[in-house]
Amino acid sequence: MTIRAPKDFWSGLMFLAFAAVALLSARGYSLGSAGKMGPGYFPLLLGLVLALIGAILVARSFVIQGERVGRLSVLPLMVVVLGVCLFAFSIETLGLVVALVAVTVVSALASWKDFRLREAALLAAALAAFAVGVFVYGLRLPLPVWPAL
């Protein structure tokens, strides 16, 4: 058995994984009956359909020819995700300026080949100034600007 259509194969596995999570967690919700659908009825239905589609994709990937999955750029993805998480964990305590500078500089590292520290720092500063000016002073969105001491 060789996988002939890797993109289909992995998509199928992804759908199967989501279906498994859905079906497992939907066990706890009462099913009800068709005439009186409980909270578990529609999720169960969708989970089964999704599992079926996943299974079709996986089975089909052994038969039909398909494209290979290209190289995953794991590192840039992780850098960007790290930047976003830094923002999430700093916005409430350290405020908008610090959080925005952190996410901008860190995610700029995702294309490290043409990363320039000065440029990234300037960009971050400009962005923070713009965001504070427009969102906080212009639109009066409730955002903490500076670290809460």
């Binding site: 976003v84 925005l100 995610s107 962005l127 965001a131």
Partner: peptide
């Protein structure tokens, strides 16, 4: 792109 990511976070 870092600017887009920043605005998405906000």
């Amino acid at each position: 792109f870092p600017a887009i990511i920043g605005f998405c976070c906000v």
